[in-house]
Design a protein around this nucleic acid. Structure first.
Lengths: 362, 362
DNA sequence: TTGTAAGCGTTATCAG
DNA sequence: CTGATAACGCTTACAA
């Protein structure tokens, strides 16, 4: 049916090996031979059969990116960045949406959802530290996010605690005393919510502000709708506030909606800041202050680490943890222009590569 | 290295074919044999080699979705819907971002960017009717959008003209007389901008309102920033308006920003409506009215048509064009709840499948 | 610089 | 119900 190298070889009057050489840019070919082969390729409309090549080379040039869902702007922008970084390196990305379901996240790791890709960049949301065992896999894996630490894999994350602390201190420095937080996960010990809430409390402490449970708004899912609900609840309860730290931008935009509905002026009555610096943030009214967690760098680094792992032939390099610098981006919703300074990891140099002691994978 | 069917067969004391049968759920196998094979599979941790299977079956279970960029919420949500629909059918999606560049869109069609996938769902933005020739390809293809009509491929699109007309009439019915449009592409004859602008003019005419070029705001790229700029320009020029029809939601959200900056009340002074009904629309302040173009149905139908095409063995079915119903979604920004009625294609039954006369592909 | 031949790990054919 | 055996289209030693 389809035209094969064999056909091309026959047409060009050379061996199949020579055609292969031409296709793969092998340099030592007589110009004349190359031309003949190329002509035959054009005439016949030949295109290499990737499946055959993949079988032979044991590599597909594909990587999987597994995220909760692309409808969430943060993950859409992350996917954009990952695809771009992979593309620049000549790789293609296949996307799995896990819907943050345990079952699907497990399947992704088990490899049953990993059709023929050479590696996986995985941002888990349902699995946690109790599932550490699942992360011992026999293929190249790079983890993203804050759900699981210490897995035998490279990990690119962000300095949540430090950034959240910096945000809180920043709000305090603007004279705000009743700083609410939206998006907390009560009792959770792990994940972005826990880390950012911890940073918030550290910030309060350092600013000499009391921690008031009334100021903590729960929101299980971080959607605009849940942000609006949490904010409304707090306002309806008559809690007094002069600032809101929403644990991500979706929550913040929802909260903004609720604040407006309650006739609160932002930033006049209430200063508002989010987290993630999603593209939307720039265009809300008022424009939303946020934390840029270094998304592009995260994506770029994740791809880089994964490809390194895939390409590694001999030495099982130690697993690495990378934490790009994040940065407060001040806009109208806090009535200032922020510091623009990186929220560095206190006590260490940030933005670096921490090499985690080797663990042997299976 | 990796464990193969051969190893499993040996371990289970059966032939390789039997292992294959078990793996593929072939029904006529003695229960006992199956158990032995399954035990061997578990013991050895065997997993089928997809590349080998793909080579043999000439099918990969992969489809490509090519869109401009995932950072644009419309395409992120479309991708989400396409991936979900494909997944439900047991297929996996690989994403190409074209950045709306001619070169990359051409590459997608030429197949050079189509690593080993069985088909392509393509939403072109740079290529147009002049490039019709490029769309004659030798693999299953489903087109999305409004750039190219009449290509030899299945096509899922939306009823832009009718919806835009309905929007305009709707604004007029709310008593608005100076209805601006944001996002026009001057002189362009093809694409969403042209079609929606045409619908706008039809609507004006039917409402008995004059067409005033001052009310037409250009915006080449449909981003929030360009929407804000176009809106600002018009307001700075002192153009009098009482309604704005932004040709998509990103533009609308940008315009909303500019309206606020100019101290215009929405919907008091100016009614605002967008297009696409992106998730954001619900959570802006005020919530944005929009047009739901039937995104989920578009995604679902596109996948369905493509898989049908891929599965087709014999008969080259005629190319089909499908136009799901769209619907005005009224929210706060127009101060009403909209009609909720589908914007049906005038003069024909909408939401249907139009069968385009067969054309022979190469 | 080019050709020969041996697989890569499956599935398909066809007996048995 | 199960087993040989031949492809699938390509890369890669190894020769020439």
């Amino acid at each position: 049916m389809a035209v094969t190298m064999h056909d091309v070889a026959q047409r060009a009057g050379v061996s199949i090996k020579t055609v292969s050489n031409v296709v793969n840019g092998y340099p030592y070919i007589r110009a004349q031979t190359r031309e003949r082969v190329e002509a035959a390729i054009d005439d016949l409309g030949y295109r290499v059969n990737m499946s055959a090549r993949n079988l032979r080379t044991r590599r597909t040039g594909l990587i999987t990116l597994a995220v909760p869902e692309l409808s969430l702007p943060y993950f859409a922008e992350l996917a954009d960045a990952v695809i771009s970084a992979a593309d620049a390196a000549g790789w293609t990305v296949l996307i799995e949406q896990t819907s943050a379901s345990r079952e699907r996240e497990t399947e992704v790791l088990s490899g049953r959802r990993r059709h023929l890709t050479d590696g996986l960049i995985f941002s888990p949301l349902a699995l946690g530290p109790d599932d550490l065992g699942l992360f011992t896999v026999d293929f190249p894996l790079v983890l993203l996010g804050e759900r699981v630490f210490g897995a035998p894999a490279d990990h690119v994350t962000m300095n949540n605690v430090e950034a959240a602390k910096a945000v809180t201190l920043h709000l305090a420095s603007l004279g705000r005393r009743r700083i609410a937080v939206i998006g907390a996960h009560e009792g959770e010990q792990v994940g972005s919510a826990a880390l950012r809430t911890a940073g918030y409390r550290e910030g309060l402490a350092e600013a000499g502000l009391p921690y008031d449970p009334e100021l903590v708004g729960e929101a299980g899912l971080w959607h605009r709708s849940t942000g609006a609900e949490a904010m409304s609840r707090m306002l309806d309860d008559g809690v007094e506030i002069d600032a809101v730290f929403a644990l991500n931008d979706a929550l913040a935009l929802g909260a903004l909606h609720a604040l407006h509905a309650h006739r609160m002026d932002v930033p006049g009555d209430v200063a508002l800041i989010g987290f993630d610096d999603v593209d939307d943030a720039k265009y809300s009214v008022p424009a939303l202050s946020s934390v840029d967690p270094g998304r592009d760098q995260i994506a770029h680094t994740a791809v880089e680490l994964l490809l390194e792992r895939i390409g590694a032939t001999d030495d099982p390099a130690p697993f690495r943890k990378v934490v790009p610098d994040s940065r407060i981006v001040g806009r109208e919703s806090t009535g200032d222009v922020g510091t623009g300074e990186p929220c560095r990891v206190v006590g260490t140099q940030a933005g670096g590569t921490e090499v985690v002691p080797v663990r042997t994978a299976v």
